[in-house]
């Protein structure tokens, strides 16, 4: 994906603390988190049906502060705002202006923008689709991922690019996030759970383990 969201395998992150007891770890730690969660679900519907890929694409285009510093539901809020602004549903700066006004500042609020909602809807509910052609690869096949992908909406994380693994399962076909996220079409295709060794991913000194990740057909090189 090559974006602020693509952090798999990145170094420089600190320790992970032991999780608190489940009954002390509610889904929302502050009331606003629940509001941001629910607003996002509804805002997504306002923009273009429940296009989750468009939402994830919006998340991946946030600046680092808006992605990390506001926390998980803050990131949802910021991605919702981005989608709503791009669709002409709210004006750029409208949220900040209202928040400052609510805090007692004297601020002029922007008017309603010209709607520019994408003329797009999914062909069916959900993300799974039927694909007529047979999968290119079968369980047990050795496959290699692409080393480069062009679209900034891609779903091939950096840490698995140009790596060779084995197909562990052929999963149901999905809409292709790269095009669906940008309202360019579903391009439904086969998806494989591909299993990699840690040494293939990180080199001979890596901690020993295996990893599976779902790889879209478009991201696999031709058979050798």
């Amino acid at each position: 994906m090559d974006s602020v969201a693509d952090i798999g395998g990145a170094t420089g992150w600190g320790q992970v603390s032991p999780p608190p007891p489940q009954d002390q770890d509610p889904p929302f730690h502050d009331a606003w988190e629940g509001r941001a969660f629910a607003l996002t679900l509804l805002a997504m519907g306002r923009v273009s049906g429940q296009n989750l890929d468009a939402f994830r694409y919006a998340l991946s285009r946030l600046d680092s502060k808006s992605y990390f510093d506001d926390g998980y539901y803050g990131r949802w809020l910021n991605a919702s705002e981005l989608m709503l602004v791009e669709s002409g549903i709210i004006a750029p700066g409208a949220v900040d202006a209202r928040a400052r006004k609510n805090a007692g500042e004297s601020v002029e609020e922007p008017g309603e923008p010209e709607p520019s909602k994408p003329d797009y809807s999914a062909t069916a509910a959900g993300s799974l689709r039927q694909v007529e052609e047979a999968p290119r690869f079968a369980v047990g096949d050795t496959v290699t991922t692409l080393t480069d992908v062009e679209s900034d909406a891609n779903k091939l994380p950096l840490y698995v690019r140009g790596r060779t693994g084995v197909v562990e399962a052929v999963q149901p076909a999905h809409v292709f996030p790269e095009t669906h996220a940008r309202f360019l079409g579903e391009k439904a295709q086969h998806v494989y759970s591909v299993r990699f060794t840690s040494t293939e991913l990180y080199g001979a000194d890596a901690e020993k383990f295996d990893l599976t990740i779902e790889i879209f057909d478009d991201y696999l090189q031709e058979k050798a």
Binding site: D30, L39, D70, R98, A99, N102
Partner: peptide, 14 residues
Amino acid sequence: IGPALRTEALEQLL
């Protein structure tokens, strides 16, 4: 501006 205040603002606008 923190996310709590901006969440409240967005909810009001919508």
